[in-house]
Amino acid sequence: MGRDGRVDRRQKNIRYFDYTLLLIVFFLICFGLVMLYSTSAYNGQLRFKDSAYYLKKQLQADALGIAAMAIVSRIDYRVWKNFWMLAYIGAFGLCTLVLFIGDELNGAKRWLNLGFTSFQPSEAAKLAIIVFLATIISKMPKQMGKFSSLVKIIAIVLPMVAVVAIGNLSTAIIILGIAISMVFVASPKYAQFFIAGGTVILFGAIFIMMEAYRAERLRIWLNPEKYEKGYQTLQGLYAIGSGGLFGKGLGGSMQKLGFVPEAQNDMIFSIICEELGLFGAISVILLFVIIIWRFMVIASNAQDLYGALIVTGALAHIAIQVILNIAVVTNTIPNTGISLPFISYGGTSVLFLLAEIGLVLSVSRGIHLEQE
Rank of each mutant, 00 (worst) to 15 (best):
A205R: 02
A239Y: 07
K226H: 12
L222S: 08
K229R: 14
W221L: 13
K229F: 11
K226D: 15
E225V: 07
A239R: 03
E216F: 13
A212T: 03
R217H: 14
L237F: 08
A212E: 04
Q232C: 09
I195Y: 07
R219E: 12
L234P: 08
E228C: 08
E228G: 10
E211Y: 15
A239Q: 00
Q232L: 14
E211A: 15
Y238Q: 08
G204E: 04
I206C: 09
E211P: 00
V200K: 03
G236I: 04
G204Y: 05
G198R: 04
M210S: 06
Y231S: 05
G197N: 00
Y231R: 02
Y213C: 10
G241R: 04
M209G: 01
N223Q: 14
L222Y: 09
G197D: 05
G236R: 03
G197V: 09
K229I: 12
A215G: 05
I201Q: 01
L202F: 13
F203S: 08
P224L: 11
R214Q: 11
P224R: 03
W221T: 00
I195D: 06
Q235W: 12
I195P: 04
Y231Q: 04
Q232A: 09
Y231M: 08
Y213S: 08
E216Y: 07
R219V: 13
L222E: 13
A239P: 11
E228H: 10
V200F: 10
L202S: 06
I220Y: 11
N223F: 13
G197Q: 03
L202Q: 01
I201R: 00
E225P: 11
G241T: 01
F203T: 01
G230S: 10
A215K: 08
T199V: 05
G197R: 02
I201F: 07
R217M: 15
R219W: 13
G204I: 10
A196S: 12
I201P: 02
R214V: 13
T199S: 10
M210I: 03
G198A: 03
K229V: 15
A196W: 11
L218V: 13
A215H: 02
R214H: 07
A196L: 14
V200R: 03
V200Y: 04
T233K: 10
Y213D: 12
A239K: 02
I208Y: 15
M210V: 07
F203K: 00
G230Q: 00
Y227A: 06
F203A: 09
R217A: 15
G197Y: 01
G197L: 06
Y238W: 14
E216G: 10
G197C: 09
R219Q: 13
V200W: 05
Q232R: 07
E228I: 15
I240H: 01
Y227M: 02
K226N: 09
R214N: 05
N223I: 08
L222I: 14
G198Y: 02
